[in-house]
Nucleic acid binder design. Structure first.
Lengths: 253, 253
DNA sequence: ACCTGCGAATTGTCAGGACATATAGTCGAC
DNA sequence: GTCGACTATATGTCCTGACAATTCGCAGGT
C-alpha cells in the first residue's frame, strides 16, 4: 500500500447545516486545515468523491466544488481513474497583493512614513495611460519616504485618480495606502508589476542614506479594483540590501 | 440604459456537441475572444444565465462553469441581483511561468547559451532544503551564460534533482531548461521566486561585460511540478539595464 | 423632496442522476 | 515469461430541478 487512502472518519470532517457558511466552503476549510496539520499526508489519496459525499451527507457536486477549490490553490491533484491526492510538498498560496506598510508591520519592523509631496497635478502621458484617464487631467501625486526601524527603506511615488480617496497627509503618515483604499470600500483585485534594478541617483542616495550609484530595486505597479478600473500607479525604489520581492507564479493552462 | 445588455445572438455564440472539447470550455473561449475583440464592451452586462443557457441549448451549470472560468481570470465580475459584466479595463492574464529562453525567443532576440559548468555535486544545506533532498546527496549543477543579440544578458546557476533529466551540454546550449523538462513529460505547476538587487562582483562583471559594482537584478526560484515536487532551484543574475521582470499579482480571498 | 417597504430580477448554493473517459491492475493467450 | 485485452474504479462532463440571498427599482407614505 504505497499510497494509503486517508481515513476521512478520523479527520473530524462534518458540516453544520445550520450555519450560513456554504457547505462546500466548510468542507474545503476542513480539508485545508487537515493538510496543514499533516493529518492528510502528502501523496495520500483522498477517498473517492461518491463515498465521501455519502459519508458527509452531501451531494457529489458539493464535494467536488470543495475539492476543486483546493486543486485551484495547488494543494491537491486530481487524476482520472486514480483519485485525488495531496501534493507532496507544501505549495504556499500565492502571496496576497500586499502593501509595503502591511508587510513591514506584520514583520514587526515598526514602519513609519514621511510625506514629501502630496499635491494634485496634471497627468503626463504615461501616467494617464496607466490610470486610464485623459492626459492633462488632474491626478493625485503622493511621494513618501518609508522607514523601518527608523532607517530609510524605500522611496514611494504614487499617482491616483482624482476623487478616489481623501488623501490627508496625517493619515498617510500613520498608515498604508492600500489600507486607506480598503477602508474606503475599494476592493483590490490585481496588480501588474515590473521589477528591475538600477543605480541610485544623488538625490535618491541622500534620501535613502546610500551612496550615489548604489544598487536599488525598482518596482512599477498599476493596481486594479474588482471592476477593472486602475486605482493606483506607483513607482517605487527600494534599498537593495534591505528589501527583496518574494512571490509565487502559477501556471495557467 | 447606461449598461446595455450584450446581444448574445450577434456574438456568434454556439456550441458543437459533436466536438470532444467540453461545452463549457467552448463557451468560455468564445466569450473570451468576444471580449478581446471588443464585441463585449467593458462594463456591458452579459445576459442572465438562464436565458443564455436556453438560447444555447445548454444547462445553467454548464453556462455557469464557463462564466466562472472567466471570472477567475479576472475578465468578468458577477454581482448577485445585478448580473455578470465585463470588467472595465483589460486585465491581462497572469504571465505564464516562463523561461528566460522562451521569453527571449518570443521577442525575437536570438538567444544563445554558453555552458560554463555541467556536473554532479553533493547538495549543500540550502540547496538540499530547496529541492527536498538529503543534504550531501548528488544533485545536478548547471551554470550557463545567456546571450541575446550576441551580448551577455544573464548568468544562470541551476540545481536539479538527480535522474530527472538527461542534461546534455549540447542540448543545453541549443534550448531552454523548461523546454527540456516539458519534453521529458514534466508538467510544471508553480514557482516560488525571490527578486532582489545587488552590485556585481568582479567575476560577474567580466562575464556579463559590466563594471564591478554595477547594479544587477537577482532572482532565486524554486519550481514545482504538478505533483508538488521541486524540480529545479535556480539562482540567476541579470544585467539590470537589459532586463526586468513583469508579472501580475492576483488577490486571493 | 426624502425615506421606507415591497417585489422583481439575478446570481449563489445544493441535490441527485446519467453517461463518458482515462487509469491501473488482472487475467488470459501466446 | 511477456504482451495484450478486458474490467473495475475514479474523475470529467452534463442535465434538470429547487430554494436562498442579494440587489435595485418603484410605489407609497411622510
Amino acid at each position: 500500500m504505497p499510497k494509503p487512502t486517508a481515513d476521512s472518519a478520523a479527520l473530524g470532517l462534518g458540516v453544520d447545516r445550520t450555519s450560513p457558511v456554504p457547505l462546500y466552503y466548510q468542507l474545503a476549510r476542513q480539508l485545508e486545515t487537515a493538510i496543514e496539520q499533516g493529518l492528510l499526508a502528502p501523496g495520500s489519496l483522498l477517498g473517492n468523491e461518491l463515498e465521501l459525499a455519502a459519508r458527509l451527507g452531501l451531494s457529489r457536486p458539493t464535494v467536488r466544488q470543495a475539492i476543486q477549490s483546493l486543486v485551484d490553490k495547488g494543494l491537491m491533484v486530481r487524476r482520472r481513474g486514480v483519485g485525488t491526492q495531496v501534493v507532496h510538498s507544501r505549495i504556499k498560496r500565492p502571496l496576497e497583493l500586499s502593501s509595503l506598510y502591511d508587510d513591514l508591520e506584520a514583520a514587526g519592523r515598526r514602519p513609519a512614513t514621511r510625506v514629501l509631496r502630496n499635491t494634485v497635478e496634471p497627468a503626463t502621458a504615461d501616467i494617464a495611460a496607466a490610470l486610464g484617464v485623459a492626459e492633462g487631467s488632474d491626478v493625485h501625486l503622493v511621494e513618501r519616504l518609508r522607514y523601518a526601524y527608523d532607517e530609510p527603506m524605500a522611496l514611494l511615488c504614487n499617482h491616483l485618480p482624482p476623487q478616489l480617496l481623501d488623501l490627508g497627509t496625517e493619515r498617510l503618515e500613520s498608515t498604508g495606502l492600500y489600507r486607506m483604499m480598503r477602508s474606503a470600500g475599494i476592493t483590490l483585485h490585481s496588480a501588474r508589476q515590473t521589477v528591475g534594478a538600477r543605480a541610485a541617483t544623488v538625490e535618491e542616495g541622500e534620501l535613502l542614506d546610500e551612496a550615489a550609484g548604489a544598487p536599488l530595486l525598482t518596482m512599477e505597479r498599476t493596481t486594479f479594483d474588482d471592476g477593472g478600473r486602475a486605482v493606483e500607479y506607483g513607482s517605487h525604489v527600494y534599498r537593495a540590501a534591505r528589501y527583496a520581492f518574494e512571490f509565487q507564479l502559477l501556471v495557467r493552462p
